[in-house]
């Protein structure tokens, strides 16, 4: 597996056969603290990559930097051949790199359907001058609604489509957020803790949805604490600790990596590495 994804040995910052995202020297400091200090990393195209690490490792900050929601002190990264450093977040999304949030951001006072429609790109009716003339955008709106209906059916939210998003459960909101991100037709989707707060009954369907994304040709990068999920669906795992990338590799190998065990045991006793390597303390 390592050979299919990485060129040569799996080590921190190793080159990939077909990278979609390449980041160099990304540094982010808060006050005097270094939150993220990534020398080099490549994300493989068309694969599911997990970004793991103990609390405070800088995973979400790294996500924010890559997607333009935060600005680094220095660093460059290239997505799909396009330089992204300094590009505002909405343009990053338009280029096909779409993210979700750790704390779900369902737009509570819009209906589920309106949430979905909002995800669609290049809508004529979003121009203030065209907005007044329904005839300009009516047809596109119908197409958008059809796409939204398909996705809602797939995510089993179709029965809720006319409810306010505020009325959904935590897990349903996660699903809605993912479905809404798909409305943008992304090439790469970045999920920040997709399983957090999701009721176990929904877990399996969420995992299946993520695997489906790969089948459709999308690249998936996700931050997760749940090792069960990491082992079952990821093709590649990148481990961060204290802002740096400390290990990379296919999931089974990474779990055995002493650097990873150190990172978890050193900073976060309770993390379940899933391989009976819990701290004995």
């Amino acid at each position: 597996m390592a050979n299919e994804i990485a060129k040569g040995k799996a080590e921190p910052g190793c080159a990939k056969v077909d990278p979609i995202l390449v980041a160099d020297n990304v540094l982010r400091q808060f006050g005097g603290l270094t939150a993220v200090d990534v020398k080099h990393v490549e994300i493989p195209r068309g694969q599911i990559t997990a970004l793991i690490g103990p609390n405070g490792a800088g995973k979400t900050t790294f996500f924010n930097l890559l997607t333009g929601f935060d600005k680094p002190n220095s660093g460059t990264w290239v997505f799909n051949g396009k330089q992204l450093a300094g590009v505002p977040s909405y343009k990053v999304a338009r280029l096909g790199m779409v993210r979700t949030f750790q704390l779900t951001k369902a737009l509570s006072l819009l209906t589920v359907m309106e949430n979905m429609r909002l995800g669609s790109q290049n809508q004529k009716g979003e121009n203030p001058l065209a907005a007044m003339f329904r005839s300009v955008w009516r047809k596109q709106e119908q197409l958008v609604t059809e796409t939204a209906n398909e996705l809602l059916t797939r995510f089993k939210l179709d029965a809720k489509k006319d409810d306010f998003a505020a009325s959904l459960s935590g897990g349903q909101r996660k699903l809605l957020e993912m479905a809404r991100a798909l409305m943008t037709k992304p090439t790469m989707i970045m999920l920040d803790e997709p399983m957090a707060g999701v009721n176990p009954a929904l877990t399996q369907s969420l995992l299946d949805h993520i695997k489906d994304l790969k089948k459709e040709g999308m690249t998936v990068l996700f931050v997760e604490h749940d090792m069960h999920m990491v082992r079952h669906i990821s093709d590649w795992v990148i481990v961060m600790a204290e802002g740096k990338i400390v290990a990379e590799g296919p999931p089974k190998e990474v779990m055995k990596n002493p650097a990873v065990i150190d990172a978890y045991l050193g900073a976060h006793h309770d993390s379940d590495l899933g391989a009976k390597k819990k701290a004995g303390k």
Partner: peptide, 8 residues
């Protein structure tokens, strides 16, 4: 932020 993440 949610709206921004959707490319608006």
């Amino acid at each position: 932020d949610a709206v921004r993440s959707l490319g608006k």
